[in-house]
Design a protein around this nucleic acid. Structure first.
Lengths: 371, 371
DNA sequence: CTGAAAGCGCTAACAA
DNA sequence: TTGTTAGCGCTTTCAG
């Protein structure tokens, strides 16, 4: 493995000159620069990251703190990660992802105080996030993906939930829907102060009220079962329901299952719109889901660029930016059935259908579709 | 930020003594050790990772090379990652995930030849993977998650696809199914030599033949649409089909959608079993999918332990290990309808009572865990 | 515009 | 059982 010494010798210059060619920290004549580059190429020289880090006190590593629960990463998060990695790489930095949990402060402290990270991006930010104080205390520059309750002195990029919810509601209202249920994350999640759940809740109330409509929010566990229960709940509270807006990506599938089980068609009887959802997931459903597509990749790029600016400029300007999700209309949303609707007439129970009648109902649905 | 000098001074010993206390590379008397530990605690000392890395020529960083496509990470991969991270952390190593693509050899070379990685775990291994030669050429120890075509001289951990397919087929045959379709990945993926697709194909043929049955394999695009098409195809080729085994996790949802669209019930008319699928995804479907659950976390742990052994022992023993997925029966598999007999009797499909209770219990447990 | 040399904070011989 | 010291490979003053 060639060292800078080797390169210097071969190019007939001093090590410092090689170093300056590499870092560009002081002007070098074109002739010398060429000699050095030639020598580096011939020796297939690669700077030693540890030595450089020790001498410069800069690791050139950016940490992406990405807590992973057992549910995995959605396409949204993935887009974010790849966007961030590309931006970091373009700037000559490495982006390393660390699956350290939000509460695992020991592990994070170990990582951060060993001077391994020049800066950090925090994903899954909580309203009161222990990682923020820890990292600030250690003097590690950071950018949030999401927002804490108090964003004072913090840079962040986040989804514009207000705007996203408003656009989704406008879409449904524009189609003629008046009775819309919003299926949020679970009550526990909301109580725990999960930002997106709180913000979308408030935005939904505002958007519906703005249209002179009655907001109906249902909390749902993050699972298909949760979605089924939520839908039953929704019909219990609003039998004239014609549309569902869902923040809970996991519950969406349960909602669809329960609708099919009740013999209700999508979007004929009920329209479904999924929030902050990737095209990939949207296409998984039948019919494909109309969804608010999150700006994952752009968020990642912007976050990294912001962080790099902080590293260079010392304590430069804060950057607080919100990006909305974009409406992509697919097959799951359409105009409601003409008023006086009969969607729950006949034998459809108002109470949650037990699993066994679900089968029968599905058969009815299929039959009707063929007719 | 305290240095080792500071600790040494404060403890009244030499720097090397402090170093040896930390690394355990030579015996230190209990008295001295205590003094040093006390000094470290008082100064809140943390070793500088760069300095340590430079001096020891060991970064104590393990790279997890994890190509990310736009589809995101499944729960299986997530379990793998967390299992690996836990094992690394327990050994005093950092596990950094790098989203570098398989073909992005430049970026990988940069990462590896800067001596930033002590070793690497490769995910999404292809039969002929360019990363393997690159890393071996650079002298970076590695462990594969999956297998190349030629595993000579390589350590790997992988899923035991033979065993997994056999167990799945046995489950269905045991229920009485004779006509089973296997929905694999796409023809392009198979042609491209994707290991799991090839191995499961061969295993399926072997398993079916072993039961004296006719193997029917269908290739499907990795999407709901692909699944729907595959199911139509399957019924075209085998109208008497009673069970579907699916390797293609994305297609599964299309299969279920198409079955519902045809008015066929699951598992009453057709049983569905999903391969290499996490409980989380299995629960997304209605009914929840009987699936072969992948041993993600165990694979991650074993892979890291293997890699660490390679670092210590120099070029120690190779480790090649296969772990099977475990059958978890949920609601989507049951006995086939009695042959010839029709039996849309009463209120639903025959479904083993145990499965139903089991499923309910699991859902309760999951809910509880989340609360 | 370029070179010489003093570290960066730690590890690991070599000595005692 | 402990101390002394020469680097690890690079950055960055300080001189020219």
């Amino acid at each position: 493995m060639a060292t800078m010494q080797d390169v210097a010798r071969r190019a007939g210059v001093s090590v410092s000159t090689v170093s300056y060619v590499l870092t560009g920290a002081r002007p070098i004549s074109q002739a010398t620069r060429d000699k050095v580059h030639a020598a580096m190429a011939e020796l297939d020289y690669q700077p030693n990251a540890m030595a450089r880090g020790l001498a410069s006190r800069r690791s050139r590593i950016l940490g992406l703190l990405m807590p992973m629960d057992e549910r995995g990463l959605g396409a949204t998060e993935t887009a974010f990660v790849t966007g961030a990695a590309a931006a970091a790489s373009a700037a000559g930095y490495h982006l390393v992802l660390s699956p350290i949990g939000v509460e695992n402060t020991d592990e994070l402290r170990r990582l951060a105080s060993q001077r391994m990270l020049d800066g950090a991006l925090l994903m899954e930010v909580q309203l009161d996030d222990p990682r923020v104080d820890l990292l600030r205390g250690l003097g590690v520059p950071l950018v949030l993906i999401g927002r804490t309750a108090d964003t004072n002195g913090l840079s962040y990029v986040d989804i514009d939930f207000d705007r996203t919810v408003r656009d989704a509601v406008d879409h449904l209202v524009g189609l003629g829907h008046r009775r819309i249920a919003y299926v949020n994350h679970s009550a526990a999640t909301i109580a725990h102060g999960y930002g997106p759940a709180l913000r979308t809740r408030d935005a939904f109330v505002a958007a519906m009220t703005g249209h002179g409509l009655d907001p109906l929010m249902i909390a749902a566990e993050d699972s298909a079962a949760g979605g089924r229960a939520a839908l039953s709940d929704a019909f219990g509270r609003a039998p004239d329901l014609t549309a569902v807006l869902a923040m809970n990506e996991n519950a969406v599938f349960g909602i669809l299952g329960e609708l099919a089980g009740r013999g209700l068609s999508v979007p004929g009887d009920v329209s479904v719109v999924s929030m902050v959802t990737s095209p990939q997931v949207a296409e998984l459903a039948t019919p494909a889901l109309t969804a608010m597509t999150s700006p994952g990749s752009a968020l990642g790029r912007i976050a990294v660029e912001t962080l790099l600016r902080h590293l260079d400029g010392g304590s430069g300007e804060l950057h607080q930016q919100l990006l909305p999700c974009v409406l992509e209309v697919r097959g799951s949303s359409g105009p409601p059935r003409a008023a006086g609707g009969d969607s729950t007439t006949g034998d459809g129970p108002a109470r949650p259908a037990p699993a066994r009648t679900e089968e029968a109902a599905r058969r009815r649905a299929a039959t009707r579709r063929r007719a």
